[in-house]
Computed example of a mutant assay.
Amino acid sequence: MTRAERALIVSKILGKHYPETPVPLDHKDNFTLLVAVLLSAQCTDERVNKVTPKLFKLADNPKDMSKKTPDEIYKIIKPCGLGPQKSRAINKLSNILYESYDCQVPEDIKALEKLPGVGHKTASVVISQGFGHPAFPVDTHIHRLAQRWGLTRGKNVKQTEKDLKKLFPRDSWNQLHLQIIFWGREFCQAQQCHGISCKICKATFPKRSSPFSHKKP
């Protein structure tokens, strides 16, 4: 089976199972989305959604957030992990948005990547889920699934992103990114499916009988 054939199988199964793909992080605009995505690094969306109501009650726009100290922010976001770094990043990026972007989140991935605490993956999520521009955010979870399903041999998320963008139509990237996340959480968990149990793993590699060995990013 070719990589393109496996991609078609993946697309069909995901499309049938997840016709709707709501954004998993609660937000009301692109600034609150940006902060929520930043907080989600090495943290579950569920925990982020429990923390952000308190944070956005404190401040829900760049101007107000820029006036809060990292310590004030840290007291709220501590449960998300990496609190000191994240609180400083939120404070600094809020200052930049307030002073240089008229409190608007830039609609440009390169500009987003220059903000404190915002890497390529976070910027890609904001561009796709916030602005609706085609992007394919790849984290370690999507990297793991893409390997299991034979969609990439990339040893890192950067190469996996390139491979996935070549395999799938550009207008499907935003939805497909979320569909893969949802499937991984529900059916193809790291320590349960092992590349041999879920419907997609069975369909893409019907003869695989032993746990798949991943190339770590």
Score class of each variant (00 low, 15 high):
Ala4Thr: 13
Ile96Pro: 02
Glu113Phe: 06
Pro19Lys: 00
Ser94Asn: 06
Leu33Thr: 12
Ile200Gly: 01
Pro84Tyr: 04
Gln104Asp: 10
Gln104Cys: 13
Pro211Asn: 15
Lys54Thr: 11
Gln159Pro: 09
Ile196Ser: 14
Asn61Pro: 05
Ala190His: 06
Cys188Ala: 14
Lys155Thr: 15
Asn61Glu: 13
Lys114Asp: 10
Asn95Pro: 05
Leu112Tyr: 00
Lys78Gly: 07
Cys188Lys: 07
Asp163Gly: 10
Ile109Lys: 13
Trp183Ile: 05
Gln179Ile: 01
Leu167Ser: 08
Gln129Gly: 10
Gly150Thr: 11
His214Asn: 12
Val51Glu: 10
Glu107Ser: 07
Cys198Tyr: 02
Cys103Val: 06
Ile200His: 03
Ser210Arg: 15
Ile180Leu: 03
Ala59Trp: 02
Ala89Trp: 04
Leu8Asn: 07
Ser128Pro: 11
Val37Gln: 00
Thr21Leu: 06
Val48Phe: 14
Thr21Arg: 02
Leu167Lys: 06
Pro206Asn: 07
Gly130Asp: 04
Phe212His: 15
Cys198Pro: 03
Pro211Thr: 15
Lys16His: 09
Pro106Ile: 00
Val51Ala: 13
Gly154Leu: 03
Pro22Ala: 08
Leu58Trp: 02
Cys103Trp: 05
Lys114Cys: 09
Ala89Gln: 06
Phe205Pro: 01
Arg185Thr: 05
His120Cys: 09
His214Gly: 10
Met65Pro: 05
Ser11His: 04
Gln85Ile: 15
Lys12Asn: 02
Gln159His: 12
Trp149Asn: 00
Pro116His: 05
Arg153Met: 13
Leu93Gly: 10
Cys201Val: 14
Arg144Tyr: 07
Glu46Trp: 12
Lys28Asp: 09
Leu33Ile: 14
Glu20Tyr: 01
Ala89Glu: 05
His141Asn: 14
Leu97Met: 08
Glu161Pro: 02
Ile76Trp: 12
Arg144Gly: 03
Gln85Pro: 07
Asp108Ser: 11
Ile181Tyr: 00
Pro84Trp: 03
Tyr98Gln: 12
Ser128Ala: 15
Phe205Lys: 02
Gly119Phe: 08
Ala135Tyr: 02
Ile77Pro: 05
Ala111Tyr: 07
Glu107Lys: 09
Ser172Leu: 09
Gln104Ala: 11
Leu25Cys: 12
Asp171Tyr: 02
Asp171Gly: 02
Trp183Lys: 05
Ala111Asp: 09
Ala7Arg: 01
Tyr18Thr: 04
Asp71Met: 14
Pro169Glu: 06
Pro106His: 02
Pro79Trp: 07
Lys28Asn: 14
Arg185Ala: 08
Gly117Thr: 06
Gln191Pro: 07
Pro22Arg: 10
Ile13Val: 02
Ala59Glu: 04
Val157Pro: 03
Val10Leu: 03
Ala146Gln: 10
Thr140His: 08
Arg88Thr: 13
Cys193Trp: 00
Leu167Met: 08
Lys114Ile: 10
Arg47Ile: 15
Leu82Ile: 12
Lys162Trp: 11
Gln147Lys: 01
Ala36Arg: 06
His214Ser: 12
Ile90Asn: 06
Ser128Ile: 11
Val35Cys: 14
Cys43Ser: 14
Pro169Lys: 09
Phe31Val: 00
Arg153Asp: 15
Ser94Thr: 06
Tyr74Glu: 15
Ile77Tyr: 07
Ile9Glu: 04
Ile127Gly: 13
Val51Pro: 08
Ile142Glu: 07
Leu38Arg: 08
Pro84Gln: 04
Val138Gln: 12
Arg3Trp: 04
